[in-house]
């Protein structure tokens, strides 16, 4: 299947939150008690049962209030930190660009959750499994749009083949830049390129997004340096003691040892 893309155009978003409802409906996720977080935001963060929500930021410019509204879900990175962190081979990429978790393999260790630059994966402590947005892979593979894209009335969530949708996204940015020079794409060049790409109308920080999300250095150190070096150290140690036994045998030290001990018995020690 060709690489897919979801284009989230914040300039069209009305903040209706239908996307998060559609996500729950399609994925059979139970509703959770919500409370007002700030502005119109009713969900603080992802949970094992909430895979997408809308973040609201209010900003005042020239005495006018601006809503920075952002529908959040897994970005489906091409080079995901969660997959690198996973010690159980439970996270994998599809050809279509999705980052998915195999919950048969997942053990709930939380390494993914700790290393995702956007804090997307959440561990259900009761089942010890990780849950996050699947990109509605089950719909996509059957020729349908993801539930959030399907429901979005103003067309702020668009779905299509990457090669076709990306030029449209770039054209939309160019169009907006005529009146708003801050308009830009977010995600297309992050973490190897994300499947969910955003059009932001302000700097990422205005939406509470990290400016330059990366794979944590600690994760690279852990998986690419500590693990191979640790393996080498254990291997070298095992090889050294094997050589030690052989060299001691060849030198006759084991035979001498028995003799020495016998002598020390005769002498009665020192």
């Amino acid at each position: 299947m060709a690489r897919k893309m979801v284009f989230v155009d914040t300039s069209l978003c009305t903040g209706c939150k239908a996307c998060s409802v559609a996500c729950k409906a399609w994925n059979d996720l139970p509703a959770e008690k919500t409370k007002r977080i700030t502005s119109y935001q009713s969900q603080a963060d992802f949970t094992p049962n909430t895979w997408t929500y809308v973040r609201f930021r209010e900003e005042y410019k020239d005495n006018k209030m601006h809503f920075n509204m952002l529908k959040l879900q897994c970005f489906h990175c091409d080079d995901p930190a969660c997959m690198k962190a996973c010690s159980s081979n439970a996270i994998y990429k599809t050809e279509s660009g999705y980052t998915l978790v195999d919950r048969e393999k997942c053990i709930g260790c939380g390494y993914c959750a700790a290393n995702c630059p956007w804090g997307v994966p959440k561990i259900d402590e009761a089942t010890n499994k990780m849950y996050k947005c699947t990109g509605c892979i089950d719909r996509v593979e059957n020729g349908m749009k993801p539930a959030c894209a399907q429901i979005c009335q103003p067309g702020a969530i668009q779905f299509g083949d990457y090669d076709e949708l990306m030029p449209k996204a770039q054209a939309r940015v160019a169009e907006l830049q005529l009146t708003n020079p801050k308009a830009h794409l977010y995600g297309d060049n992050l973490m190897g390129g994300t499947t969910y790409v955003y059009l932001l109308q302000d700097r990422p920080g205005a939406y509470g997004l990290p400016l330059n999300p990366t794979t944590p250095i600690s994760l690279t150190l852990w998986k690419d340096i500590v693990h191979p070096l640790g393996g080498i150290a254990i291997g070298a140690s095992a090889a050294a003691i094997t050589a030690g036994v052989i060299v001691n045998l060849v030198r006759g030290n084991y035979a001498n040892r028995a003799k020495n001990i016998a002598e020390s018995h005769d002498e009665g020690g020192k």
Partner: peptide, 11 residues
């Protein structure tokens, strides 16, 4: 939650 402290604890 994700934090530098936790991320560095792993390696």
């Amino acid at each position: 939650g994700p934090s530098l402290l936790l991320q560095w604890a792993y390696p």
